[in-house]
Design a protein around this nucleic acid. Structure first.
Lengths: 153, 153
DNA sequence: TACGATTAAATCGTATGCGATTAATGTAGG
DNA sequence: CCTACATTAATCGCATACGATTTAATCGTA
């Protein structure tokens, strides 16, 4: 059970890393979604941002970022692109000029109907029950990782 | 159970997307690993590449890419950086000059001992059994997504 | 042998992520 | 009022990802 060259302790095997499974599954998702999202003219991250706005419109950049686990350094360029495409508006909150409110345009809302028709990738190969369990498990994992950030340093 | 503004069909909820769970878990892993990998002076992807070379040294760029789910356009710059850091060598295969063989230096192998001591992130909050199941499930999911690529178009 | 097809890596342009910093605005205390 | 501090976006530089193309080497075959 040692590494094949038998020098030093056994190497960690890439296939046993949960982090690598997640990493490569994320790449696989991106590739699976790409041809579908291309029909909408959106990238993966742009699509996720739009979905978050369908759920709750007229959010600040930081509120949106909390839901997407992204900060303004990543979000701002993406939102500017979506604005240039005509899917949303960005306007300073008059009550607090530090904040920028992001809201969908009609075109942005219309994407929902187009997007709903395409029913994206249903993780073919998983039963509905497996799908739910996996979904819950990965969310738990993510939340644990975020909690651990502060604790273990 | 409709979307809150009750116009059109219910929106898909971000929290129900398995793809988003994977996406955000991957971000969370990257952030959790960062302070640990910084001690090694490596980024996440650089670390994964090194681990793959611990497992099997002296691989071509494409063989390495198959294991990491990456292609030369992504790998080449990373390997060049690792070479500049002194952790690996890149040399054309004399038997087939199209291929580049990647092999660890002594310094690259020594990283293993340093890396093993730090025991990275153990996904705190999951039992060993949950951890195993999750790992297997995500790998299955990834493989299904890759298989589906050709099939569903 | 010659030459078109194939293969492998590298290059280029675009889109993310993210640490660090900056600019603008708001807030609290003297 | 004024200054120190806090908060929010935005900016900048660096490191990935990836589609498309390019370059170099090899292969197949007439």
């Amino acid at each position: 059970m040692k590494s094949k060259d038998a020098k030093g302790p056994a190497s960690p095997k890439l296939a046993d890393f949960l982090c690598f499974a997640i990493y490569s599954a994320n790449l696989a998702y991106g590739r699976a979604y790409k041809p579908i999202l291309e029909e909408l003219g959106l990238t993966y991250t742009q699509y996720i941002a739009i979905v978050a706005l369908w759920e709750e419109d007229n959010q600040t950049v930081s509120a949106l970022g909390e839901k997407l686990f992204l900060e303004s350094n990543t979000l701002t360029p993406i939102l500017k692109k979506l604005e240039a495409m005509g899917y949303l508006r960005r306007q300073r909150d008059p009550a607090d000029e530090r904040q920028v409110l992001v809201s969908l345009t009609d075109a942005g809302r219309r994407l929902r109907e187009k997007g709903l028709g395409m029913n994206l990738v249903q993780a073919s190969g998983l039963t509905p029950d497996e799908f739910r369990k996996m979904q819950k498990g990965v969310v738990t994992l993510r939340n644990n990782l975020i909690k651990a950030r502060g604790g273990e340093g």
